[in-house]
Design a binder for these strands. Structure first.
Length: 221
DNA sequence: ACCCAGGGTCATA
DNA sequence: TATGACCATGGG
C-alpha cells in the first residue's frame, strides 16, 4: 500500500466507496464460461433484462452450447434470441463465436493460452470488439483485464480522471497499470460501475473528484 | 411518442 | 482516421 501513487490510492478509494454503497455484485450471472460469452454478445448495446429472456429461450430449447449453435439454422437461432434485439446480426455473431470455441477445442484448451493471445484471437471473430473481448477475458476466463464501457467512461470523466474520448486501449492499459492486477478486483469494480450507472444511489462519489486532468494539466496519454 | 440500453461493422471521404 | 448509417427489442 505504501508504494501506491496518488492515482492508485484514489482509484481504490473510489472502488471502496462503490463497494460500501452497493456490496458484492456476484458477476457474471451465468452457469458456464460459454454462457458468459453468449451473454457478452447478446448484451451489446442492449438492456440485460432482454438478454436474460433470450438466454432463457436458448436454454429451454437446449441450444445453449457451442456445438448446437454452430449447427442451428441461422434464422432459427435468430428467432430464439429475438428479445435481445439486433437478432439477425447477433445470430451470426453467436455462430462465429461458437465456431471459434469449437475449433479451439473448448474452454479447457482455450484457458491455457496467454491473455494477449486470447484477446488477439477473440478480436479476429467478426462481431467481437474490444469490450466484448474483455468481458469474455475477465468474466469467462477470470483473467485480470479491466473492461472499458460507456459507463466507465462517463463515471471517470465526471470524476475528472479522463477526458472521455481516449481510445479504448489507452484507457484499458491505463486502468490496468493503475490498479493491482487482480481479476477479482477488476470483476467487482466493473460490476459496481454498472450498478452505480443504473441506480446512482452512491452520493458519496460525487464529492470525491480527483481532478487528475487539472492537476497534471495534461491527458493520461 | 420518445429515448436509450452492459457495441460492432461496414461504407464512404 | 474519422464520421455516419445500420442493426431492433422492450422498458422507462
Amino acid at each position: 500500500m505504501s508504494q501506491l501513487n496518488p492515482e492508485q490510492k484514489h482509484l481504490l478509494r473510489i472502488y471502496q466507496q462503490l463497494y460500501d454503497c452497493y456490496g458484492p455484485q456476484n458477476w457474471w450471472p451465468a452457469e458456464t464460461p460459454f454462457e458468459v460469452m453468449v451473454g457478452a454478445i447478446l448484451t451489446q448495446n442492449t438492456n440485460w433484462h432482454n438478454v436474460e429472456k433470450a438466454i432463457a429461450q436458448l436454454r429451454q430449447s437446449e441450444n445453449l452450447n457451442a456445438e448446437k449453435i454452430v449447427n442451428l439454422d441461422t434464422n432459427n437461432l435468430a428467432e430464439l434470441i429475438k428479445p435481445s434485439g439486433y437478432y439477425n446480426v447477433k445470430a451470426r455473431r453467436l455462430q462465429n463465436l461458437s465456431q471459434w470455441y469449437v475449433s479451439a477445442g473448448g474452454f479447457d484448451q482455450l484457458k491455457n493460452n496467454s491473455i494477449a493471445l486470447l484477446r488477439k484471437s477473440l478480436l479476429q471473430i467478426n462481431g467481437v470488439g474490444p469490450e466484448t473481448a474483455d468481458d469474455i477475458l475477465l468474466y469467462a476466463f477470470n483473467l485480470p483485464v479491466f473492461v472499458i464501457d460507456t459507463y466507465t467512461r462517463r463515471l471517470f470523466t465526471s470524476l475528472k480522471f479522463i477526458r472521455g474520448d481516449e481510445p479504448y486501449e489507452v484507457l484499458r492499459s491505463w486502468f490496468e497499470a493503475s490498479l493491482p492486477g487482480d481479476a477479482s478486483l477488476f470483476n467487482e469494480y466493473h460490476a459496481l460501475i454498472v450498478r452505480h450507472a443504473k441506480e446512482r444511489r452512491c452520493n458519496e462519489l460525487n464529492s470525491m473528484p480527483y481532478s487528475y486532468l487539472e492537476r497534471e494539466n495534461n491527458s493520461i496519454i
